[in-house]
Design a protein around this nucleic acid. Structure first.
Lengths: 173, 173
DNA sequence: TAATAATGAGTAATTAATCACTTATTAGTT
DNA sequence: AACTAATAAGTGATTAATTACTCATTATTA
């Protein structure tokens, strides 16, 4: 990975997240990265290849967060770690998540199976705790995660911490 | 509103929602609508004017849903109506909501004040019911609404109804 | 007949991608 | 070390296609 290659990735992530993938031209990326436009195609073949390279980085960094939940063990700890997930995302990764969330709506880009492993663990946790409908409970938590992450990424509400306290109480975790 | 004008709006909504605003050209809209491209600019001035016309329709149709909650009165009913909101959206309006949700991520397009009226009503409802942190509770419900709507619009989970039952129980509504 | 609706050919600018070319870096042989 | 060949990194001009948009003209309606 050369220095200019990294500059391209950084510029592309920034522009894609801020202005959207479709409305960011490769010439804009090249200008922002301080690089000739041709270099983008030399390293990433085409515009989509550039996006894929970025999304692979995003997948890699999200794996770290997920494994932390996986290793929680006890059901209550699983649920707590899960609820805390949106709070664990580092500010430096916000652009990555903004892009990920934006791409969900760009057709064909949504992979619902990506969270299947977590969903199963969560369901088991609720089951062990004797919840009536563990599957629905798991789905509900996922909805919270999605809604909370969206809020944090878009308009950073001032009562972030209070919301966490609030939902933790509901699950006694 | 002429017949062709409506066809343009319908085609544009469909394409914008499916493939995104930026990656949908006016020529594609014209082709889909069975109309000359120039007509789009005669009626809507430019591409952004077309989008604005669509979003105005979306605003109008969302007002109906919101007023229903406004008129609920009793705090418990307010909360119940609120939780049911994502379930009240008609399938025929899904494209409109998909576009609305997708545009949130397209920078500058996010208007957090749009929900302020509802947020206030919801906060009051929680306050009247003696909840400890009504503001956080209101925010939490909004996160659920966002997450649930996203799930419904993107991958229509099979246990939609169970999730509603599940969350209603948590709020005793 | 006057206004509006609708067309379709045209335009300048931008797009993703290619290409011939130059510069730097590495590897192999003396 | 020093020379050389090969590979990779990087440039910038260029391309064909597409873009949003205009405008002169024709059809339709009031």
């Amino acid at each position: 990975m050369t220095e200019k290659q990294e500059k391209i990735l950084k510029a592309a992530l920034n522009l894609f997240a801020q202005n959207g993938y479709a409305s960011t031209s490769t010439s804009k990326v090249a200008k922002e990265a301080g690089v000739s436009e041709g270099l983008i195609f030399r390293h990433f073949e085409n515009k989509e290849g550039l996006l894929k390279a970025i999304m692979n980085m995003a997948m890699e960094s999200s794996k770290q967060l997920i494994t932390e939940v996986m290793l929680a063990g006890e059901p209550k700890k699983v649920i707590r770690k899960m609820l805390e997930l949106p709070y664990q995302v580092d500010r430096s990764h916000y652009d990555m998540w903004r892009l990920t969330y934006a791409l969900k709506w760009q057709m064909n880009m949504y992979d619902s199976s990506a969270n299947d492993a977590l969903r199963l663990i969560l369901k088991d946790a609720f089951q062990q705790l004797g919840y009536e409908d563990p599957e629905a409970e798991a789905e509900l938590v996922f909805m919270f995660l999605d809604g909370a992450s969206t809020a944090f990424l878009l308009h950073e509400p001032k009562n972030k911490a209070d919301v966490l306290k609030c939902i933790k109480k509901k699950y006694n975790v």
